[in-house]
Amino acid sequence: MTSNQQQPDRVHRPPGVCIPWEEKVRELPRITANEQLVRKTWEDIDALAYMYIWHLLVSS
């Protein structure tokens, strides 16, 4: 059996991510200094939201 027939286009939302940084950064004012620092902060908190929904599904 194969699933490679008429499957929908996937949304780019990889494991661990709810709102990708690439999407968020477009909404922010120009980052004038260390972008990686801002990105890490965003992704660390975003991962908690991901954890919330997936642990509701899997763990509880």
Binding site: Q7, P8, R10, V11, R13, C18, I53, W54, L56, L57
Partner: peptide, 17 residues
């Protein structure tokens, strides 16, 4: 199924929860 396959995390937040 297509909605789930396309975006599992989005489906869980928007439809399942």
């Amino acid at each position: 199924y297509d909605e789930l396959i396309k975006d599992p995390t989005g489906y869980l937040f928007n439809v399942w929860l």
